[in-house]
Design a protein around this nucleic acid. Structure first.
Lengths: 148, 148
DNA sequence: ACTATATAGTTTGATATAGAACTAATGGAG
DNA sequence: CTCCATTAGTTCTATATCAAACTATATAGT
């Protein structure tokens, strides 16, 4: 492959990634109840999976968004009482994010809303291929992350 | 794989896609000159590769964004004189988008700005893997597109 | 030909996000 | 102990995007 072909391939690849992201995000946004956005759901999901009591910073690191964006998103979740934000016990600059009961039940409810879509994708997609791609995607993510 | 594992895999997959898209987009945005955004560059690139004289609709189809978004993006390009928008000769509702000389030279300039980044990615990434993934990504995109 | 439906593009309002400038608290170097 | 660099979070501004309502033109069915 010459340089031009490499560039073209790279461009195509990221183009495809971008379109998939756009289509999947807007599809999920339309399915989520009550005007919630995927980014909100993703945070609830993160706290369920990894346990709550995380700092805003650690969450924004996990999703690779800016601190300002995280303030905004956590504010939205907090206003809906899906999370509770408390001062960090040993660091006056920091905070800790906890799930509320409403947050947990909302998460279950959101999962229910999303599952039909996810299940349909599972039916139509070759999951083995997806599973195979995952580590490669993670590698590419790591490279991008390193070069930030 | 049981249903839960399938769902988890699907979630992970789209999560990774989302993060890659976010990282690559913000990296590219920072590199583009003069406050231009990847979405602007992508349209210039589209018109260079496939030829200009396209309708706004066909461009928004290609990038899977809404018509309103395309109006906004084309407006930005037009205000910078990178494109020229003319009435469609045979359809009074429609328009045609052409590249200006400034648009073409800006595109070359943008390519120059982006190439170092792209080339570095090429160096650090296994391009064969990327090439292998591309058709699978296109298949997933097609499924999402069909279910819109 | 007339009318109803469909299509192309615009406008408006809401929201997600980045980036930069800011505040407050921490922690290390001298 | 004091001062400076670092870190956590917030605020502000700009912009990308979607969704829905809207306008104008085109097309199909009767």
């Amino acid at each position: 492959m010459n340089t031009d072909e490499k560039r073209k391939l790279t461009f195509q690849f990221f183009n495809e990634i971008g379109i998939i992201q756009q289509l999947s995000t807007t599809a999920l946004n339309r399915m989520l109840p009550d005007g919630l956005h995927v980014s909100h759901f993703a945070i609830l999901n993160h706290l369920i999976r990894l346990g709550d009591g995380k700092t805003p910073q650690s969450i924004s690191d996990a999703f690779q968004v800016t601190k300002g964006t995280m303030t905004h998103t956590l504010g939205a979740l907090s206003k809906r009482n899906l999370i509770a934000i408390q001062p960090h016990p040993s660091d006056g600059r920091s905070k800790l994010v906890f799930l509320t009961d409403a947050g947990r039940s909302f998460h279950s409810q959101a999962i229910e809303s999303l599952n039909p879509f996810v299940d349909q994708l599972c039916r139509e997609t070759d999951l083995d291929v997806m599973e195979e791609m995952l580590p490669h995607l993670q590698a590419i993510r790591a490279i991008l992350d390193k070069n930030r």
